[in-house]
Structure formats: C-alpha cells, structure tokens
Design a protein around this nucleic acid. Sequence first.
DNA 1: TATTTTTAAGACAAAAGAGTCTCAAAAACC
DNA 2: GGTTTTTGAGACTCTTTTGTCTTAAAAATA
Lengths: 153, 153
Amino acid sequence: MLLSKSCVYGLRASLFLANQEKGKFIPIRHMSDKLEISFHFLTKILQQLTAEGILESFKGPNGGVRLVKDGREVPLMDIVLAIDGPQLLTECALGLPGCGVQNPCPLHDKWAETRDSIKDMLENSTLTELVHKGRAENLRLTAESGFDILFNE
Amino acid sequence: MLLSKSCVYGLRASLFLANQEKGKFIPIRHMSDKLEISFHFLTKILQQLTAEGILESFKGPNGGVRLVKDGREVPLMDIVLAIDGPQLLTECALGLPGCGVQNPCPLHDKWAETRDSIKDMLENSTLTELVHKGRAENLRLTAESGFDILFNE
DNA sequence: TATTTTTAAGACAAAAGAGTCTCAAAAACC
DNA sequence: GGTTTTTGAGACTCTTTTGTCTTAAAAATA
Ligand code: SF4
Ligand code: SF4
C-alpha cells in the first residue's frame, strides 16, 4: 500500500475537519463514529497531527480538535509527512539504502518520474479543494455513505 | 512502501536471472549470496514465481531456477502481480472498500492518474531493457556493488 | 469540591509482514 | 545403493503495523 492505514485515517479525519465550521472544536468521538474508525486508534493518530502543529486540541466539554490553518492552505502532503514521514519520497522501487542520482539502480529514472507524480498530487491537493469537490458531487468518505454524512446530526 | 520487501527481492532476483546465459539454471544460493538476500527467504519468494509460471526450477546438482521466457518479454508488472497481487492497481489513496468510478471518493480522479502512471511504468519496463541499461551504466542491484557483481565469479 | 466530558499517554493484544530453520523429495554422481 | 546438491513445503520466530484498553490530566459546570 502506498499509504499506511494510519495515514489514510488521518487524511479522512482531516477532510472531515475541513468541512466543519471554521474554528470550532470537534470531539474525536464524533468523527470516529461518523467515519467508522476506532475511537482510540483515531485519537492516537490525531495526536500526531496535533504534535506536528496541523491540528490543535482542547480538553473538556466543548473540546475536541480543529485545523490550525484554513483547509485551503493544507496540502495532503502535510498530513502524509506528519504520519508516514518522508519515506515515500526518499525510498524507491528497489528499496536500496542510501539511494540517489549518484548511485542509482536501473529503475531509478522511471521511478523518479512516478515518484514525482505522486509528490505533485499530494502537494497540489488541498483539504478545502477536495471538500468542495466532495460536497458538489456528494462523494464518499466512508465505506457506505456519501459526503453528506458530514452534515447529518 | 509501494512494493513489499518480497516483491522487491523478487524483482532484483529476476533482473539477476535476466542477465544470465539464457536457458541456464542458476542456484538460488548463488543469487542470495550475490544479492545479499537471505537464502531461505529468497527461496520462498522464487517458489511463488515458479508457481506462477514466470520461473522454472530444476532440482539437484546443476539445478536452480531460470526464466521461462526471454527477459525481454517479461514486464515488471508480471512479477509484481505474482508476488503482491493486484491491490496496487485496485486499492487506492483513501483505501475504501469496493471502490470504483460509480462510487468514488474526492481523491479518485487525481489518484487514478497517479495509479495509471505507476501501472504504465511497471507494464512498459521489461527485465531485459533494464539489464541493458544496468550493464551499460554499471548501475547497482545491491547496497554496495554495481551491476558488475552479476559477472564476477 | 465533586462530577462529567474531553484529550494525553502509554501499556497491552492481535494480525500481518519479514525472516529462519528443519526435513522431505528429486536429481546427479560415486 | 549411498552421498551430495539442489528445490519444495511448512513450521516456527521476530518485528512492525494495527487496534484495544486503562488511567491520568485538563476543562467545564454544578
Ligand atoms: S536508484 Fe532510485 S529507484 Fe533505485 S533504489 Fe535508489 S532511489 Fe530507488
Ligand atoms: S474512489 Fe478511487 S481513490 Fe477513492 S478510495 Fe475509491 S478507488 Fe481509491
């Protein structure tokens, strides 16, 4: 898999948050219910995003988490880097250690192209952009429901 | 990681075989030494390739494994499918089950592009092509050595 | 202050991936 | 036939990933 499960959950939760009223703290329990992700597992993942400065959290009643920046300013890459780290961009097809252009394997040229296209996609897609698209077309964020699950009470 | 470790080892061993005298059986022990891969682990991986009809094996002295087809006819995709299966081409960015164009997530369009570029790379690269490139430029297949390790006795 | 609601932290367990080991079966050679 | 060399099959262990659970700390509210 390209992204770890933690990373995928982190992305889905971030999209959820980008679709909420700006500045409002959303309880993790609410998200874990809507997105059908284990509450404790999601909590652990979002703690990483909080530690990385992508989310901020607040304890107690009316607490929860929220995006620090407007989702428009948050490329998916930020979340991927916070959770999976940079391996995706540094490791490669044949997985040899300490790779680079100085000492490449036969796949390097082709792989570098592919890797760049992954990189570009993650850097050029922002949370808000995807939320707009998802809202407009009622796309889904969970196994069953469409995007509208994010609005239902 | 895009490809599992088993898959990467399978690819490296296949490149090694594509660089050998056509039709000759190469002992797995020889490959595991040269490529610095655990002998037993590599054996298990190559057994999968044999079961899938990509390699054929022969027991006993002067035995080993060899490519069934000329490496020119073997795209990397064959080896990836044999070892990692088709998930790379069917699973996707947000990892939702049963995905497709009928019921996409907000990332689908962008991911589909990226996925196609991965697919194209694996389908359009053949073992022989990469061996030629590796030989011409003495590229590496292991952590330390260059392509010439495949020739040294 | 006591109770409730929430995140924080980390121990713990289950599952999957990676790697090791042993023994059997086939082939060659003495 | 017996020994050696090789792949085949599978049990087994170790590590990483994934997921669960418990307890603590902070904040609100009564
Ligand atoms: S040379 Fe490039 S493709 Fe090959 S292992 Fe290194 S970074 Fe990966
Ligand atoms: S819609 Fe496409 S990108 Fe999204 S989860 Fe499904 S297959 Fe993957």
